[in-house]
C-alpha cells in the first residue's frame, strides 16, 4: 500500500515546529482552529469549513490587522492541513473500529 505516514508527519512537524514568519503559537492555533482572535479566527474558520467562501475582504481584514502575506500564507496552510488531518484521523479511527469487528477486512497479500 501507499504509506504517507512519515511524509505526513514531516509536513505537520515542519509547519508547526520549524521556522516561520508567524509565531509557533499562531500556527498551532490555526492548525487547531481554536484560540485565535478576530479577524484571523474568521478567516481560519472559513478555510476549515468552506474555503470556497473566503473573500478578498477576509484576506484584506487580516492584512489590515497587521499580518503580512507571508504570515497569512503560513497560517492558511496550517489551517488547511489541520482540518484535513482531523478528517483523516476520523477516517482511520472508523476503519480501525470497523475492521476489529469485521470478517471482511483482509490485508492485501504481502
Amino acid at each position: 500500500m501507499a504509506d504517507i505516514t512519515q511524509a505526513r508527519r514531516a509536513v505537520v512537524s515542519r509547519i508547526l515546529e520549524g521556522e516561520g514568519r508567524a509565531s509557533h503559537a499562531q500556527r498551532r492555533a490555526a492548525f487547531d482552529n481554536a484560540g485565535l482572535a478576530e479577524p484571523l479566527s474568521k478567516l481560519v474558520a472559513k478555510v476549515t469549513q468552506h474555503a470556497n467562501k473566503v473573500t478578498d475582504e477576509d484576506i484584506a481584514a487580516a492584512r489590515a490587522a497587521g499580518f503580512s502575506e507571508d504570515q497569512l500564507f503560513e497560517i492558511v496552510v496550517c489551517a488547511a492541513i489541520g482540518q484535513a488531518t482531523r478528517q483523516y484521523e476520523k477516517g482511520l479511527a472508523a476503519l480501525e473500529a470497523a475492521a476489529e469487528r469485521s470478517e471482511h477486512a483482509p490485508r492485501d497479500p504481502r
Binding site: 500500500m1 501507499a2 504517507i4 505526513r8 472559513k46 478555510v47 476549515t48 474555503a51 470556497n52 473566503v54 492558511v76 496552510v77 489551517a79 488547511a80 492541513i81 482540518q83 484535513a84 488531518t85 478528517q87 483523516y88 477516517g91 482511520l92 476503519l95 475492521a99 477486512a105 483482509p106 490485508r107 492485501d108
Partner: peptide
C-alpha cells in the same frame, strides 16, 4: 483495509490542497 487507507491518504491530500486553492 489497505485500500481504505490508501483512499484516506488521497482524501487527506486533496482536503488540504483544495482548501488552499480556494482560499
Amino acid at each position: 483495509r489497505d485500500q481504505v487507507e490508501d483512499a484516506l491518504a488521497v482524501c487527506f491530500a486533496f482536503n488540504t490542497i483544495g482548501r488552499l486553492a480556494d482560499t
